[in-house]
Simulated assay, not measured.
Amino acid sequence: MTYQGVLTKMQTEMGNPIQYYLVFEDSFLNMNQLLNKEIEINFMGYQCLNCSKKKKIFRQGFCYDCFYSSPAVGDWIMRPELSTAHLGIADRDLEFEQKVQLQPHIVYLAAASEIKVGVTRKTQVPTRWIDQGASQAIAIVEVPNRYLAGIAEVALKSHYTDKTNWRKMLQNATETFDLIKEKEKVESLIPAEARDYFYSEKNDLYELQYPVLNFPPKVASLNLDKTASFQGKLIGIKGQYLIFENGTVFNVRSSEGYVVTIDV
């Protein structure tokens, strides 16, 4: 059976294991049901997620023009400490930025390849951690806006990474960490502006199980711009990656805006 559409990041549902869905405009695939089966991915073209024009994707599913004009991909997305909506100052579109920035945000520690610190909107828990392929995660601060979360994250970056080593994550080459103990260490590191929001009594540890039959000893990333057609046996899904038997991995999220057919 053939499915065709524009790639967007896989939708997820918390479970044991996590359930993954690839959603197109007129159809969807439960990716868990394709484990241990051959699938074929064919690149057909591009469609910008913002303007819907068939223009080459530049970054994050957006064409070049939209990437540098849309408020949905302002610098404050990747660097929350640059948020200014709480001051009434616009970056690209104050109404949009107030809607996103002026809501509860979580600063967290997550174990993926190693312990990392990160920021997410409260409404994106636990989706954000699933998308990163974290095996465990714990919230450490809940603040009322993105700026406060950003300055707390910056303070913790000198002690923890803010990146996931995707190769180690997909090979399951990770250590065992005690995130509750790690959380206890960081309260004094939080800036004074955000310290009152520290979760001093709350220790809700999330444990995340992924649908992976086997972890490959080596991984190589599939790039649809270089390899327009790929066929392989799906053996796992972790983060936003499809993992194939031969060690090929496909990052669905980094391929947002690509039009594909998928034969199953």
Rank of each mutant, 00 (worst) to 15 (best):
Q60K: 15
V186L: 12
P191L: 12
I262D: 00
I77N: 11
Y197H: 07
Q136Y: 14
I243G: 02
A152H: 02
V73K: 13
V125M: 14
R167W: 02
E201Y: 10
Q98E: 15
M1V: 14
E201S: 08
R167G: 06
I89G: 07
D204L: 06
I77M: 12
L205S: 11
T12C: 06
R128P: 05
T127P: 00
M1C: 11
V260I: 15
I130S: 04
G118P: 09
W166P: 00
R79Y: 13
L242M: 14
K185E: 12
P144Y: 13
K9A: 07
T123I: 02
P80I: 13
N16W: 14
P80E: 14
A110P: 01
R146T: 08
G74Y: 07
K183H: 02
H105F: 13
Q33D: 15
T123W: 00
N251A: 06
G45S: 00
A111C: 11
D196H: 06
L179N: 12
V100G: 02
G74H: 01
G74Q: 12
T127E: 14
D204G: 00
E182K: 11
S255E: 07
K185D: 08
A110H: 00
A72D: 15
T127R: 13
V154Q: 11
V73F: 15
L148T: 01
R128D: 06
Q103F: 00
S69V: 09
F62A: 08
H105I: 07
A155G: 07
K183I: 02
N32V: 12
K99L: 11
L49K: 03
E201R: 13
E13Y: 11
R128S: 07
E245R: 09
N42P: 01
Q132S: 08
T227C: 03
G239N: 05
T127N: 13
L222E: 01
P217F: 05
K55G: 01
L7H: 02
A134V: 07
T176L: 14
S229M: 03
G247E: 05
L49D: 03
E182S: 04
L242N: 04
L102T: 04
L222C: 10
A152T: 12
Y20C: 01
V107I: 11
C63R: 04
Y258I: 04
C48I: 03
T248V: 15
